[in-house]
């Protein structure tokens, strides 16, 4: 392991190491799926517990779920607009919740206690495959939203104020998923690395504020990703006059 130029005496920092699972001709990163399944399981358990017995006067977990639902609805409604936000709210909400539990799960759960033959468990969003998958889903959904709402008139968007915008708008279709995926990936990976390096260098006290900062960044990144996804969809379904 030679990502960092010198060898740490306390532990080993593993970057770019993966636990490979072979499925037919394909290889997948096992550690990403293990953590994501655990976190999705936790999320679904929370949802199932909270929606088991819903009442008009909310109690306990139902309160939390309703707060989340309200938050996601406001996010979707402000970005996508009153007309079609209902169709896209589950997608935006799933992005937000999945990224949020992935980020926080990666930061809060002491995965290091579980030894893997190769690689290490961590936030699923610290793997470029996950973030690119999410970003491509966003690209597909805003194309789908635009085409299903406006048909071929969607492409008016590319020449909207003037045809001069055409190349920029085409470039945007590539930079949108690129920036979405790399922003999330970079932030989460950097956060994990900073915490790991600090823990190696100064194992006491000093990493704690950085960990809190990491939690803050994680939440903000989930919000940014969901907000941008909603904004792109809103941009695609917006009517120009």
């Amino acid at each position: 392991m030679g990502f960092l130029p010198f060898v740490f005496p306390l532990a080993e920092l593993e970057v770019g190491q993966h636990l490979y699972w072979q499925i037919g001709n394909f290889r997948i990163h096992g550690q990403v799926f293990m953590t994501s399944w655990l976190l999705i399981g936790a999320l679904l358990a929370l949802v199932v517990i909270g929606t088991k017995k819903m009442e008009r006067d909310p109690k306990g977990v139902q309160n939390l779920l309703e707060f989340l639902w309200d938050y996601i609805r406001d996010l979707a409604r402000t970005q996508i607009g009153e007309k079609v936000y209902r169709d896209w709210m589950p997608f935006i909400g799933t992005l937000f919740l999945f990224i949020f539990v992935s980020n926080w799960g990666g930061a809060l759960v002491p995965w290091k206690l579980i030894e893997l033959p190769s690689g290490e468990l961590g936030a699923p969003t610290a793997d470029i495959n996950t973030t690119v998958a999410l970003a491509l889903l966003v690209s597909l959904s805003y194309f789908y939203a635009g085409l299903s709402n406006k048909g071929l008139r969607y492409f008016e968007y590319y020449v909207h104020p003037t045809p001069i915008m055409l190349p920029f708008k085409i470039v945007e279709d590539f930079t949108k998923p690129l920036s979405l995926s790399f922003r999330l990936f970079g932030n989460i990976l950097a956060d994990e690395l900073v915490v790991a390096v600090l823990v190696f260098l100064v194992p006491l006290v000093l990493p704690v504020p950085v960990m809190f900062l990491g939690l803050f960044t994680s939440a903000i990144q989930a919000l940014i990703f969901a907000t941008l996804a909603a904004y792109y969809i809103g941009e695609a379904v917006e009517e120009h006059h």
């Binding site: 770019g16 199932v48 309703e66 495959n129 690119v132 998958a133 999410l134």
Partner: peptide, 30 residues
């Protein structure tokens, strides 16, 4: 770090499935 493989499409499918599950378990009832 930039090791792309079948994780990507599988994760995409997983997120889409999660969207449908959350839609029926969370978004609709709540």
């Amino acid at each position: 770090l930039f090791d792309f493989d079948a994780t990507l499409p599988l994760m995409a499918v997983q997120v889409v499935v999660l969207t449908f599950i959350l839609n029926s378990l969370f978004f609709k009832p709540v």
